[in-house]
Amino acid sequence: MSDAVADEPLLGGIDLRTLPKVSLHDHLDGGLRPQTIIELAEPIGLALPASDDAALAAWFAEKSDSGSLVEYLKTFDLTTAVMQTREGLTRVAREFVEDLVADGVVWGEIRWAPEQHLTRGLSLDEAVEAVQLGLDEGVDAADAAGQSIRVGQLISAMRHLDRGREIAELALRHRDRGAVGFDIAGPEAGFPASRFADAFALLAREGFPATVHAGEADGVESIRGALVDGRALRLGHGVRIAEDITIESQDDEMSYVSLGHLAQWVKDRGIALETSPSSNLQTGAIAAWGDDLTAHPFDLLYQLGFRVTVNTDNRLMSATSLSRELGLLVDAFGYDLDDLLTFQLNAAEAAFLPLEDRAELVELIEDGFGNA
């Protein structure tokens, strides 16, 4: 039974969970069910801060709402601890897909860092294979139930460590066995994409796409590094690109803005921003603009024509789902169904899929929204 968020986000009587959606930024170790953590912790003797699933979920939500990415990341010590065996990784991956299906996701990119899952003897390749097995089981179960979902792995390297080239090679070894892209994650400030220049050069030579966490815990120069040194096709969060936008003047009906060169580049080339509204609030990514969701620069970026997408980042830590995130944006900015469709089409067009598959995904989404 799923521990997924029980909210019922609605828009004009439409249950947002029934709409076809694309998830581009969703961490495997941030999407565990609390009950699964409890069950996996027992045989390895891992002490937990709570013994029932509701209390454990509340603990994660409280500890994650710190206003600091560094503090937020500490909660992952607990989830990664129960993801060190084949069985643990496979179960978590299978349930991850099940929860995406329940949320209406039809294409999901699941990102995770294999190098963090080796303490009980698994090799990097064995870890990737264990996760792929779970993903395949989840997809097969959905198919058997008459539901449709496709998923892919985004293989992440931890930016404060020095295994970038090795993890890039790992991703390439599995490109025809479930891996669809590469990422760097972890503490952003002080660990620029240039640290992994050789890895990104290798991926570019091999024609393998990359997204880079940037513009979350660091600003415009981090985004520039992601694009220049990281060859990023998308920006993980990317919300602080708004620091390169100046509001010249505004009145009750109109705002006049100017874009810096980098913001203009990101906009003009349709580089997708993988925003995660609740997470961005929790980690302080939008602190420069305010301390509630209505202050999020998401709407400014959307109105200016940036390719904004909506994501969960970490469903456990933010006690959320993709449908809930869309509902929060509806409440904050008054969006309608056409706006939500735009966000899904933005994500579909930025997916790490072949062009023909993206076209099919767009058609699937348009049909689903048209029938809502």
Rank of each mutant, 00 (worst) to 15 (best):
T119P: 00
R120F: 04
A54R: 14
G104P: 13
G88A: 11
L89E: 09
L69Y: 09
F76C: 09
V101G: 08
R86N: 00
V82Y: 05
G134A: 13
E115W: 07
L56V: 04
A55L: 00
E42N: 08
I37M: 12
A57P: 02
M83A: 14
L133E: 10
A41E: 05
E39K: 15
E98K: 07
D136C: 09
F76D: 05
V128A: 13
R91A: 11
L46S: 12
E126L: 04
G45M: 08
V128M: 09
T36C: 13
L48G: 07
T90I: 05
A57C: 07
I38G: 12
D77Q: 15
L40D: 03
E95A: 07
E71A: 08
L69A: 06
A81M: 02
E115I: 10
A81E: 11
G134Y: 10
D103P: 14
L46E: 14
A58L: 00
G67C: 11
A47V: 13
A81W: 00
L118P: 07
L124T: 01
V105C: 08
V131C: 08
I37P: 12
E98Y: 11
S51T: 14
V92F: 08
V92E: 00
L133Y: 01
E129V: 09
V70D: 14
P34Y: 01
L73E: 04
Q84G: 05
R120P: 00
Y72P: 13
G67Y: 04
S51Y: 03
F96N: 15
A57Y: 02
A130T: 12
L78W: 05
R86D: 10
E126A: 15
T90Y: 01
R120D: 02
I38L: 15
G67Q: 10
V101K: 01
M83L: 15
V97R: 09
